[in-house]
């Protein structure tokens, strides 16, 4: 796979333009699987993706974290060469989606936000027809299907029709299907949205294994825990723009404090900013709770008691990407 990537296009020397550099060149960073510069997608007047820059490196697991409508799906569809960009540059696996769509898609696996499984056919048939779109020999697909179904924990359901399967099973089948062509890049658009916690954890485990196996993953999600667990690096997306980028830890370090004190006030108005001032580096008053950002949340709690403020209950926790998003946009990820 590595050799094949190299043969497509000579690897460029490391480029000066880094993530977020304004108006950078088209030159891909070394080992870049996807490079976007000022990438834009408009639907009429609505700008869904607004001049974004990012590089996705081979072997990493790269996330797009953002609320509904942020432009994640639009970005994935452009990377997957299913949707033409409005402007900007985009290079995927060394090629331009505008001119080399089929060739790029031959090496990409896509798990779309909305399932597109053939519900009347069996689990195995779904893998078969998908592999046949790539014109893989039946024998090859059957061999791979056996491994992939075991991986997706669907071996027992191989000969069942897809329709009655649970949401989690369908999602795992969609992932198995996307892997049947042994892609160099796997794109997962909201892989666990709508699943119950147990199904989500099983899916995370499978994605983690893929990551360990060295598959380049691109994941969109509006779950901060998903992004934290699965992504080496991510961009925080909001209203078509990239608000920040980096590893989960670096983002938390940069945009939030180490700890957070969550306060809930039941039955009476929460205290205003004034009475909480100075408790932490930053205070967020949300409709249902108050967040005090402090490196030492226990100390903030002590001070709160000293001021005679008594919340109905409180919680000390570590900062998360949710807090990063809140700090960047003033809004919560999931509303």
């Amino acid at each position: 796979m590595v050799a094949r990537f190299g043969s497509v296009r000579p690897v460029h020397p490391p480029s000066v333009s880094s993530l977020g550099a304004p108006g950078g060149g088209v030159e891909a960073a070394e080992g870049a699987v996807v490079t976007a510069r000022r990438l834009t997608k408009a639907f009429g007047d609505l700008v869904a993706v607004d001049h974004i820059d990012f590089d996705i490196v081979r072997g990493e697991s790269f996330g797009f974290l953002g609320p509904n409508g942020a432009g994640k799906t639009s970005t994935m569809r452009m990377i997957a060469c299913m949707s033409p960009r409005t402007s900007g540059t985009l290079t995927v696996l060394g090629r331009d989606p505008e001119t080399d769509g089929p060739a790029i898609r031959a090496r990409i696996g896509l798990v779309p936000q909305e399932d597109s499984l053939d519900l009347q056919l069996t689990v195995l048939d779904n893998l078969m027809i998908y592999g046949r779109y790539f014109d893989l020999p039946k024998k090859v697909i059957r061999e791979r299907a056996e491994r992939l179904l075991a991986f997706a924990e669907l071996t027992e359901r191989a000969r069942d029709t897809v329709e009655p399967l649970s949401g989690g099973m369908k999602r795992r089948l969609t992932i198995a299907r996307a892997l049947v062509s042994e892609p160099d890049l796997l794109i997962l658009d909201e892989p666990t949205t709508g699943l119950d916690p147990q199904a989500r954890h099983l899916l995370w485990d499978r994605l983690y294994r893929l990551k360990l196996a060295g598959v380049t993953l691109v994941i969109t999600t509006h779950y901060m825990d998903e992004a934290e667990q699965l992504c080496d690096r991510l961009v925080v997306m909001d209203k078509g723009r990239i608000a920040a980028s980096g590893s989960p830890a670096a983002l938390i370090e940069r945009y939030s404090t180490r700890e957070v004190l969550e306060l809930r006030f039941v039955g009476h108005e929460p205290p205003g900013h004034d009475s909480l001032a100075g408790l932490g580096e930053r205070i967020e008053v949300l409709p249902d709770r108050v967040l005090v950002y402090a490196d030492d949340a226990e100390r903030a709690l002590g001070e709160l008691e000293g001021r005679g403020i008594r919340p109905a209950n409180w919680l000390v926790r570590r900062s998360s990407l949710e807090d990063v998003f809140l700090s960047l946009t003033g809004r919560t990820l999931v509303d």
């Binding site: 997957a80 299913m82 089929p102 898609r105 031959a106 896509l110 499984l117 779109y133």
Partner: peptide
């Protein structure tokens, strides 16, 4: 859409 995610156009 499933087809168009593969080399098919």
């Amino acid at each position: 859409y499933a087809m168009l995610a593969t080399p098919l156009a």
